[in-house]
Computed example of a mutant assay.
Amino acid sequence: MEIYQHFRKEEHPFIDQVLAWRDDVEMRYQRKLTDFLNPREQLILQTIMGNNPDLVYGFSGGAEGAERKRAIIAPEYEIIEQDDFQLTLLEATYADKFITLEHRDVLGAFMSLGVKREKLGDLVVQDGVVHIVAGAEISDFIKMNLTGIKKANVDFIEKPMAELMESKETWSTKETTVSSLRLDVLTKEIYGMSRKKARMHVEAGHVKVNHRVVEDTSFLLEEGDLISLKGKGRSRLEEVRGQTKKDKFRVTTSTLN
């Protein structure tokens, strides 16, 4: 099928999943609510759905600028409402004067409970407060079972989605040219290091693309890819704006401050 030509081989299983969702909704006339999708998965779903006249679809992660979102695919005559995404905002507080918690600490606590990342949306940790957007189907499990993160005792309670904290993290954007879209080249450019050092980080498993470790230095990045380097934070390839006369790529990248 032509759709596969536009995406990486390792993304084909997710493409198959989206195609199955689409076909099932068309056949059964019953909507499909997905787990949380990362930006790349959202792009794939949008591409596959296209302008299908028989179906409608939408995304929500609880806030306008949410990174991770659930999707709904429905027959074209249905109206998708915000409540249909079945999102719950959970809040816990801790004494940040005595304990320091980071994003990875909180996410690790969820993973240790056996909660799949796909059931969790965006996570904000700041000023002694933890906010997590979760699928409503697992909110009771979290409230009952997640009572500690590192040395902090926590008690998660449900809050109105309108109270979701806006993260103080900001993204800085940069326009530049690169010789290729290889992972080692973009890692070098984004994080300001030699290409040799970038290759070492990739080969050592320190670099993730869309939350998956990639150890292939020649891995080609595409628009929307989220990159993270251990100890150096997250970045994103926002746009590929064509090539120069010398065959270099004009790109826009952003880095989380």
Rank of each mutant, 00 (worst) to 15 (best):
M1A: 15
E189F: 00
D24L: 12
E10P: 03
Q243A: 05
L256W: 04
S179D: 07
V209A: 00
E215I: 13
P13Q: 09
L181V: 00
Q126C: 07
R31I: 03
E163F: 05
G135T: 03
Y77M: 08
E78K: 11
K197S: 14
M200Q: 15
P53Q: 09
T88E: 13
L33G: 03
Q126Y: 02
E158P: 05
L107P: 01
M144W: 07
H103Y: 10
P13T: 09
Y4P: 03
T255Y: 07
P13V: 06
T187N: 11
K168D: 11
I3G: 01
E137P: 05
E223L: 01
K230R: 14
T47P: 03
N145C: 06
I15E: 07
R117D: 01
T173N: 07
G224F: 00
M165G: 01
G114A: 06
E169F: 07
S112F: 04
A92M: 05
D83C: 02
I73W: 08
K69S: 08
G61Y: 01
S172I: 14
G61D: 02
A198P: 13
F156G: 06
L229D: 02
T244Q: 09
S167G: 15
V56I: 15
V240F: 02
F156L: 03
I132K: 08
L164M: 15
L107I: 02
L220K: 14
I73K: 10
E91Q: 15
Y77R: 08
D23V: 12
T34S: 15
R182C: 12
I80D: 04
H211M: 13
I73V: 12
N38F: 00
I142N: 00
V213H: 01
T177M: 05
P39D: 01
S179V: 14
N257M: 12
K69P: 04
L33P: 13
E137W: 13
F59W: 10
K150P: 04
P53Y: 08
V25F: 05
E166C: 06
E163R: 04
P39Q: 10
H131V: 04
K230S: 10
E203N: 09
K232T: 02
K248T: 08
L226S: 08
K196S: 14
M193F: 05
K151E: 10
Q243G: 05
V124G: 06
K168R: 14
D155G: 07
L113P: 02
S218N: 11
H103A: 03
A134Q: 01
D24C: 12
H211A: 12
K232I: 01
G233T: 03
G224I: 00
E163H: 10
E163M: 09
G231L: 04
R241S: 15
L164E: 07
V129E: 06
D127M: 09
L120C: 11
E166N: 14
L87A: 03
T244D: 13
